[in-house]
Structure formats: structure tokens, C-alpha cells
């Protein structure tokens, strides 16, 4: 018989318990915003957005706990196009008024846990929207290089301080909310880099090496 992987450690229990009040807050805010306009509607949008941000913090913290637990994170082959599509749908309210350009071939795969890969992309996009002017463009690209997948999210914001470029592990990086990304990527023996974007802005680049042979290199059908 299958058993629920019921969260037993105190943090996971707390995270589980917090999701209910967050659901009530999100539920009431989304109900009340219907039929409102102007400043009142914006206030409720802000409540909804911050509720989602709080729940994303829980997700990030849970991911770090999983990484810290020591055992290797599970992996499966995932389509990056599908991940990007799912994440853009989930972040739609945050991306209103922005041009998001994607350059992802349909057959680019990434070898990762689905929740972790989704969280990586969510964080990169959230980061790109939070630290750049409203309405500025974002680009997402993915490609295969040797036996690894590289994801890049580029923004047209103020760019990076010299300090942030030099050392992504330092507080400048955590300010940009990428701590969980850094930890997940490290546990996959990958790399997270921040570099200035040519023409202004920042690029956050994640590279995750495969742990086994990609199914596209096998003969199937």
C-alpha cells in the first residue's frame, strides 16, 4: 500500500500548517478583488502576490531542507520547453505587461527533479521581475552543452554590482533571492553564475550536468 510521505520533521510540519492560513488569505483576497477597481483592487493584488511569495519561501526552505538531508536528489528527464511553459503560466500575474521571449528548442531536456527544476526557474524569473523596472523585457534560453543543460534568464534591469559578479555565494546574491537555487544546483553538481548582460541588465545562468545518458541519444520509437 502506498503511504503519504507525510511531513514529520518540525519544519515540514510547520510548512504544512502554514499553507492552510495562506490558502484562506489567498482565497478571501481573490474573492474580494472581484468587483473592485483602482487602489482597493491593487491592494488585494498585493496581498495575493505576497501570499504567493510567502508560500514560495516555504517551498525554497523545504527544498534546502531536502538538499541538507544529504541523500542525492531524485532525477528524471524533463522537457525544458514544458517546464518553461508551466512556470510562465504559474507566474502569469507577475508577468503582466512584460515581454518574455523564450528560445527553447522542443527537444532540450534537463535531468532533474521536477519540483526542483520548477523552483529553479520560478526563482530566476521572480528574481528577474523583482529587481528590474516594471514592463522591462525578460529572455529565457535553454541549450544542451555536452552532457549538461544550461538555462539562462536575462533581464534588462540595472545590472549587477562588481561585487555580485565576483562572488555569487556572498550576501549580494542572497539579496537577489537565489540562495535556494544555489543550493539545489550545487547538490546536482552544477553551476550558478551571474554575469552582466551585453547591452545592460543581468544574466543568471544555471548549468546542470546529466547523471545518466539522455533518452534522446537512445534509439526509441
Amino acid at each position: 500500500m502506498s503511504r503519504t510521505t507525510s511531513p514529520q520533521d518540525p519544519f515540514s510540519r510547520l510548512a504544512h500548517d502554514l499553507r492552510s492560513p495562506l490558502s484562506v488569505i489567498a482565497g478571501i483576497a481573490s474573492r474580494e478583488r472581484e468587483g473592485l477597481s483602482g487602489a482597493s483592487r491593487e491592494a488585494l493584488d498585493k496581498i495575493l502576490d505576497e501570499t504567493l511569495r510567502a508560500s514560495r519561501m516555504l517551498e525554497n526552505r523545504a527544498a534546502i531542507a531536502k538538499v541538507d538531508a544529504g541523500s542525492a536528489l531524485p532525477r528524471e528527464w524533463l522537457s525544458v520547453e514544458e517546464l518553461v511553459g508551466a512556470v510562465l503560466a504559474r507566474l502569469e500575474p507577475r508577468l503582466v505587461g512584460r515581454s518574455v521571449e523564450t528560445s527553447v528548442d522542443g527537444d532540450v531536456l534537463i535531468h532533474s527533479d521536477a519540483v526542483m527544476a520548477e523552483l529553479l526557474l520560478i526563482n530566476l524569473l521572480d528574481n528577474a521581475t523583482r529587481y528590474t523596472p516594471p514592463g522591462s523585457a525578460i529572455e529565457i534560453t535553454a541549450r544542451r552543452v555536452d552532457s549538461a543543460t544550461t538555462l539562462e534568464v536575462s533581464d534588462h534591469g540595472p545590472g549587477l554590482s562588481a561585487e555580485a559578479v565576483r562572488n555569487v555565494d556572498q550576501p549580494a546574491e542572497s539579496r537577489r533571492g537565489l540562495t535556494a537555487c544555489q543550493r539545489i544546483v550545487a547538490s546536482y553538481k552544477g553551476k550558478l553564475e551571474m554575469v552582466p548582460r551585453a547591452g545592460g541588465g543581468a544574466v543568471v545562468r544555471i548549468t546542470i550536468p546529466d547523471a545518466s545518458t539522455s533518452p534522446t541519444s537512445r534509439n526509441d520509437k
Binding site: 499553507r19 490558502s23 482565497g27
Partner: peptide, 8 residues
């Protein structure tokens, strides 16, 4: 969770 009313 958290979900909004429309989704539910």
C-alpha cells in the same frame, strides 16, 4: 495550497 477561489 495556497489556491485561489477561481482555481477551486
Amino acid at each position: 495550497k495556497p489556491f485561489n477561489m477561481r482555481e477551486l
